[in-house]
């Protein structure tokens, strides 16, 4: 091999590294553009009035998004109420019964559920709740979102608990503790950071979901606290007003986008902090 050839190969390696780096960081550019643009367009729309009043009809400027904020909080709260207990219990089931047949199928179904498009979940909630109950309701939206949360909560619970050493459980069993106390008093508290971060991720994910709400919570231009009636939510409001032809409404949607973005961002940061802070040293 002559020196020229080696130089060529080393050069090629450098070029490849540079190209890879450029492509990798190119991903960040659209993200920065999107974040920058939305914050620029929306931040000026946000003030106290924006947060506490409902949207104005076409033609009037001003108005706010309180109906969507309240709606989002209520819908997500109900979804969490459904998904967190079921998710954690199912996660415990999977981590404890790892090799049984039922667990195999259960795990398969969780995998499937994770990939189901959100719009399909919307259809399902429509037929399971909206139609039987005779109308759109925030509750049906919550159920749809809960179904979307489940796989994330289950998987994170299962993965977290599986990583804990078996000596932990044995220590508890050896003290004569019944199974449920071993789980809730020892295993879950030690794995709480992992479980919580899964829960937070799940909440962050459903906060931005619109598709399952289109035919369930349906949207509502007024402030409502009744979960058996249609209800507005942040992403739904953004969708409705962003695709409307009116500038006032679009402005409202920009403001709402910033709020939604902040919400999701904070949840993600919070998740990271939890994982770091609450981690029990084994």
């Amino acid at each position: 091999m002559d020196g020229k050839n080696i130089k060529y190969r080393i050069g090629k390696s450098y070029v490849a590294q540079i190209v890879t780096t450029i492509f990798a960081f190119a991903c960040v550019i659209p993200l920065l553009f999107i974040l920058g643009f939305i914050i620029k367009a929306g931040i000026t729309k946000i003030n106290w009035h924006f947060l506490v009043s409902i949207p104005k009809p076409v033609g009037e400027s001003g108005g706010g998004i309180v109906n969507a904020l309240v709606g989002s909080i209520l819908i997500i709260f109900c979804a969490s109420l459904i998904a967190i207990p079921i998710g954690i219990l199912a996660g415990i089931y999977l981590s404890e019964n790892g090799k049984t047949r039922l667990a195999y199928w259960c795990r398969l179904c969780v995998d499937i559920l994770q990939g189901v498009p959100s719009i399909v979940i919307g259809i399902i909630a429509y037929f399971w709740l909206v139609k039987p109950l005779g109308g759109f309701s925030a509750l049906s939206g919550s159920v749809a979102l809960a179904i979307m949360m489940l796989p994330i909560v289950i998987r994170s619970t299962e993965e977290t608990l599986k990583l804990l050493p078996s000596s932990l459980q044995e220590a508890a069993f050896a003290l004569g503790m019944p199974f449920h106390r071993v789980m809730f008093k020892v295993v879950v508290p030690v794995g709480i950071s992992g479980i919580l971060s899964g829960v937070m991720l799940a909440i962050a994910r459903i906060t931005g979901e619109t598709a399952p709400l289109l035919f369930t919570a349906f949207g509502n231009p007024y402030l409502s606290f009744n979960i058996t009636k249609p209800m507005q939510s942040l992403p739904h409001l953004i969708y409705d007003y962003a695709t409307s032809p009116y500038d006032d409404w679009k402005n409202l949607a920009w403001g709402a986008s910033v709020i939604l973005l902040l919400w999701v961002l904070l949840l993600n940061i919070f998740t990271k902090l939890i994982t770091r802070k609450w981690k029990v040293q084994l």
């Binding site: 050493p165 000596s167 932990l168 044995e170 220590a171 508890a172 069993f173 050896a174 003290l175 004569g176 503790m177 019944p178 020892v186 508290p189 030690v190 029990v280 040293q281 084994l282």
Partner: peptide
């Protein structure tokens, strides 16, 4: 029931395993 058995017969393991939390 195992709960009674284990309350009557305690166990100490090879590796110390205090509850970390």
């Amino acid at each position: 029931h195992p709960i009674f058995v284990r309350q009557k017969i305690g166990m100490v393991f090879q590796r110390p395993n205090p509850f970390p939390n």
